[in-house]
């Protein structure tokens, strides 16, 4: 059974595309056949994050128009040939496609893939409705900010109402130091509100930006950064492995604060 997962958030800019690119790549590295689908018509950028921009010949719209097969439109990744990208059309807006057409596209990809990751646009309008239409599972991406968490809550409710049953949470851009100083919502604060299972936590990491600019997902690095490890762990959890959360504070801790925590008994 192909796992069809939508990556969504409500709020924009929280890292949906970054997470889609990295999880797609990490799953492909584990011998999974993965198709990542950019559902952000008009503002596509998944191709940039994957470094595949100049290899796009056909987009999803060409497939729907009958100009090519979905297989042909899928851009294969040279580094990881089991990863393919179905690009969105850049010159059209989100009304250019309907939920049923989105289902049709994904149905075309399903037989030849183990995972289909759909990168959802921000918001809860048409583009969102399109992106979630074919999905069986959802990964809700949020950052530890009140506004992002509020939008994530809204989106989780809409997913439930639209029969996307398996929703998991990915908390992106945690800054352990700020959490420790009580200046940022902690993982627990976020879960306390959202009440859905946690898939993973990704720290805020400057190398995410560097890797985006290069078109090379973090998980391709030889010497993995903490964020890269976190993405790998999330991919492993998606495959059913039990992987404990990494201790994000370890690198930031000085002896004193560790001692203090130890004495407090946590």
């Amino acid at each position: 059974m192909t796992r069809i997962i939508v990556m969504t958030s409500g709020k924009g800019g929280v890292g949906k595309s970054t997470c889609t690119a990295n999880l797609g790549m990490a799953l492909a590295q584990r011998n999974q056949r993965v198709a990542v689908v950019d559902a952000d018509f008009g503002l596509r950028n998944l191709d940039l994050l994957l470094g595949l921009e100049n290899r796009i010949v056909y987009t999803a719209l060409d497939v729907l128009a009958g100009d090519c097969t979905v297989e042909k439109a899928l851009v294969k990744d040279k580094r990881q040939p089991t990863l393919g990208l179905l690009a969105a059309a850049q010159n059209r807006n989100k009304e250019a496609i309907t939920p049923n057409q989105m289902k049709e596209l994904v149905a075309g990809l399903a037989p030849s893939n183990d995972f289909i990751l759909i990168d959802c646009p921000a918001g809860i309008e048409m583009g969102f409705q399109n992106a979630i239409a074919p999905a069986k599972e959802a990964i809700v991406v949020t950052t530890p900010e009140i506004s992002a968490v509020r939008d994530a809550d809204r989106v989780i409710g809409l997913l439930e109402a639209n029969d996307v049953k398996f929703t998991k949470l990915l908390i992106n851009r945690i800054k352990p130091k700020m959490v420790q100083e009580d200046q940022m919502m902690s993982v627990r604060d976020v879960l306390d509100i959202l009440a859905v299972p946690l898939l993973g936590v990704v720290p805020d990491d400057e190398r995410v930006i560097v890797s985006s600019n290069r078109g090379e997902p973090l998980v391709l690095e030889k010497q993995l950064s903490l964020a890269g490890v976190a993405f790998n762990n999330i991919a492993r959890r998606l495959l059913g492995e039990e992987v404990p959360l990494i201790d994000l504070t370890a690198t930031h801790d000085d002896l004193f604060s560790r001692l203090r925590r130890f004495l407090r008994g946590s």
Partner: peptide
């Protein structure tokens, strides 16, 4: 303060905590 990510493991992440919300 000890509710930071450090103290959290998958098993400890029961969503029904008794911590007060921000």
């Amino acid at each position: 303060p000890d509710d930071s990510a450090a103290a959290v493991t998958d098993s400890g992440l029961d969503t029904g905590t008794d911590t007060a919300i921000d």
